[in-house]
């Protein structure tokens, strides 16, 4: 389980580092307005929210799995 989690976090870090740095960022480095908002401004906040959302998702998954593992541990204790 922990291994899977580690891999997921590794992937998220790589994604975040890619999103928040050039060259991906430079794609949006323009003075154009999208929905009346500067394109880079919009991009950064959307990407930021995405990364936070994914982090929250992983953290929730993790705590659920930890809870499950704890219960399983407790369950096996009573079995033994």
């Amino acid at each position: 389980m922990a291994k899977k989690i580690t891999e997921r976090y590794g992937a998220l870090i790589i994604l975040a580092a890619l999103l928040f740095n050039p060259p991906i960022m430079s794609i949006f480095n323009s003075t154009r307005l999208i929905f009346g908002v500067p394109m880079l401004f919009l991009y950064l906040f959307v990407a930021w929210a995405l990364v936070i959302g994914l982090n929250a998702y992983l953290a929730k998954k993790l705590s659920a799995e930890q809870l499950l593992a704890k219960e399983r541990e407790a369950g096996s204790d009573t079995d033994a």
């Binding site: 580690t6 976090y9 870090i13 580092a17 928040f20 990364v51 936070i52 982090n55």
Partner: peptide
């Protein structure tokens, strides 16, 4: 934000 994404490590 990046550092808190890397919190696991």
């Amino acid at each position: 934000t990046l550092m808190f994404v890397a919190w696991w490590f």
